[in-house]
Each structure stands twice: as C-alpha cells, then as structure tokens.
C-alpha cells in the first residue's frame, strides 16, 4: 500500500489528513459523529490558519481533483468545511445541539464525494 500523500506545500498536514480525508459525505459524516471536542479542536487549529492557502491552491483544480495528493487535500478540506461549525458554534459537540438525529437524514443526492 502506498504512502498517504498530500501536495508538498501541505505535507505537514499529512497525519491529520490520513484520519479526516474520506471520499464521501457519508464517510465524513460518520467520522464527524464519532469525533470528540478535542478532535474538532485539533482539526480546526491546524486547518484554519492554512485555509486561505488551501482554497487558493484548490482554485486551480477542477471540481473533482484527479491526482492522488490533490484529491486527499480536497477531501481534507471538505471534512473541515463540514466540521468547522462543530468547533465554532456547537462547543465541540459531534451532534448539532437540540437537533433531530443526524443519522436519520438521508443524503438523497447520493453518497458521492
């Protein structure tokens, strides 16, 4: 099995990406539902200062990046985009507070990346 890769400029995020970068919304949701307050904090503190750089890099890529390293960074950014409210708004709670059970929401657009 090949080593988990990120674009060189973001190689310092490799360990984090190996955990969070999942190809589908459902896979990322499952990971998010089991995350702790500390998990969200670590993700947020690592990505937020690099978000401008990541988005700037992603601007040059197609909607579905093709290369393995680019794709991993894209999936990491997707995970961050979906997880940041849990750190910023929900005090690290994996579920949206006072909400419906998230698992009962079906993503009818399909489980695509």
């Amino acid at each position: 099995m090949s080593e988990f890769k990120l674009p060189e400029a973001f190689a310092d995020l490799t360990r984090l990406a190996a955990h969070w970068a999942k190809p589908t919304e459902y896979q990322r949701s499952r990971l998010r539902w089991s995350a702790s307050k500390e998990d969200f904090e670590i993700l947020y503190d690592a990505i937020m200062p690099r978000l401008d750089a990541i988005l700037s890099y992603m601007k040059s890529l197609p909607v579905k990046p093709i290369g393995e390293a680019d794709r991993n960074l894209y999936w990491l950014a997707c995970a961050f985009a979906e997880a940041s409210p849990h750190h910023e708004l929900y005090e690290g709670s994996a579920q949206v507070p006072h909400s419906f059970v998230a698992e009962r929401f079906v993503a009818a657009h399909g489980d695509v990346s």
Partner: peptide, 26 residues
C-alpha cells in the same frame, strides 16, 4: 462550482443549512 475551492465552500454552506434543518426537524 467552477473549481474545487468553490465546491468546498458550497459544501460548508450546505452543511450549515443542513444543520439548521436538523434543528427544525427536531
């Protein structure tokens, strides 16, 4: 979206709105 960055930003907006819907359906 015209590139991966716009796609990621839309996913964030979608997640925020989906979360509001989770609050509604509760």
């Amino acid at each position: 979206p015209q590139n991966a960055a716009e796609d990621i930003a839309q996913r964030h907006v979608n997640a925020l709105h989906r979360n509001a819907w989770l609050e509604d359906t509760a």
